[in-house]
Design a protein around this nucleic acid. Structure first.
Lengths: 243, 243
DNA sequence: CGCGGGTTTGAGCCTACTCAACAGATGTGG
DNA sequence: CCACATCTGTTGAGTAGGCTCAAACCCGCG
């Protein structure tokens, strides 16, 4: 299979068929890929940046921090995700986004984004769809963190990571990567690293989980989804509404 | 002061100056207002609805529900807010949105939204800005719920409601409306109604709060903002980036 | 070899929950 | 207009889930 040049398009490709003009527009837009190492900021930290990024490979994460070591991981990005949409309404980035693994990104300015909106409204609609998907996933996550027990929260987190990896890569194996320390998982779930550890060990001991760093396998995914009433939003995305 | 016809424009008006063509476009788009009573769904529940709504007056709220009475209020909307952006990527609404007070809404189809994008890209950019603002507020909220103590969570909630009301109405009084039962506040914060009650009474007894249903007054707002390191995102919105 | 980041385990504690009961509103039908 | 049902708010007593503190272990790395 021919490797598409655009990570964003690769993602969309399973939902719509694009004409060649649209493909070309995206390719031109994405330009060249910049490498980033683990822990690097996605955007250079030194200057006010009005750009957005398309993550081409690797994982990234956004954090909110407050007094002391109070940290929350608010977003997790994988190949094809758009980074910086939530900063569009501000002059300065409100979010701190760093690479979670080594990877590459494409940077584009808001002006380029605008041009896209006018010349290819359908692509723009897809962008909106994608961002609505993120918002929906966020709502689900908020609900899980707000109302679930610690164990259910952890399960929900793992299921949603798994769903998202499936959106990105063609992969039928149950095994999927989990490039987070237990502390970081805690920061995503509102738990202590220590408690995350206990939960993981517990699940592993109960045979529900196989942990082989940095990979993980959920033994009986269907049972978990049943138990949590998990909805795979990624699976029912529909971007064919553009005029 | 002349009352603008568009709730969305009224909101934007403090950030940008719009030309008359843009105003006209919005007015045409919004069309007529439909009344809704408290607890009514914003969108008619019976048919798959591909529309989005602009809330013209009153408050609305979105909920996520899971097994039993596990409910989370994920979004709170006030006059001028756009409802349904997070469903754009789906055929069926993923979110259950109901009126929190009596009010009125304007409904528009996705097709109309698309037209707007092409004919008035600047308005579209503002729409994106607005939605990025919501996403940012959501991230802050996630952080608060994830890492704050119950009392801090409640304070954060009240501060953000207050900030949002200021965005909507020109109001210098410290007093602001809080059209939620204690159970609903709990659903927004991940707390029990009983515990919300204890917290509210405690704060009131400590003189930090004055409660006169359905209004509330924060006695020393600055102190709270200091304590929580509260950032008023609404205040620093910048929509002047359209090409 | 020492060092630091991540993981693992134990013991004790506190925050926020549960259950229960009642008082006040609000609303509804006769 | 009252009687009844329901929703909301208030308070008390007891419980437990997830936290804190502390210490060890593992592993890669300089």
């Amino acid at each position: 299979m021919k490797q598409l040049n655009s990570a964003f398009l690769t993602r969309l490709n399973r939902h719509v068929t694009l004409d060649s003009a649209e493909r070309d527009a995206m390719h031109r837009l994405e330009g060249t890929a910049e490498p980033r190492s683990k822990r690097d900021p996605v955007f250079a930290a030194d200057r006010p940046d009005d750009r957005i990024a398309i993550l081409r490979s690797g994982w990234a994460a956004s954090r909110v921090r407050s007094a002391g070591d109070q940290t929350t991981i608010t977003q997790i990005y994988m190949a094809g995700d758009l980074i910086g949409l939530s900063d569009l309404g501000f002059r300065l980035p409100q979010h701190e986004t760093t690479m979670q693994t080594d990877g590459t990104v494409n940077l584009l300015s808001r002006a380029e984004l605008c041009d896209l909106g006018q010349s290819h409204p359908r692509l723009f609609a897809m962008l909106l769809s994608q961002s609505s998907l993120d918002a929906t996933a966020m709502n689900d996550r908020l609900h899980a963190i707000t109302r679930f027990s610690a164990e259910d929260r952890l399960m929900h987190f793992l299921l949603s990571i798994k769903s998202k990896t499936e959106q990105t890569t063609e992969q039928t194996s149950d095994r999927f990567p989990l490039p987070f320390s237990q502390k970081e998982i805690g920061d995503a779930l509102g738990l202590t690293d220590i408690y995350v550890n206990r939960l993981l060990r517990g699940l592993q001991k109960a045979g529900q989980l196989v942990l082989s760093r940095p990979y993980i396998r959920i033994t009986d995914r269907a049972a978990w989804e049943e138990r949590l009433n998990f909805k795979d939003r990624y699976a029912c995305l529909d971007v064919n509404w553009a005029c």
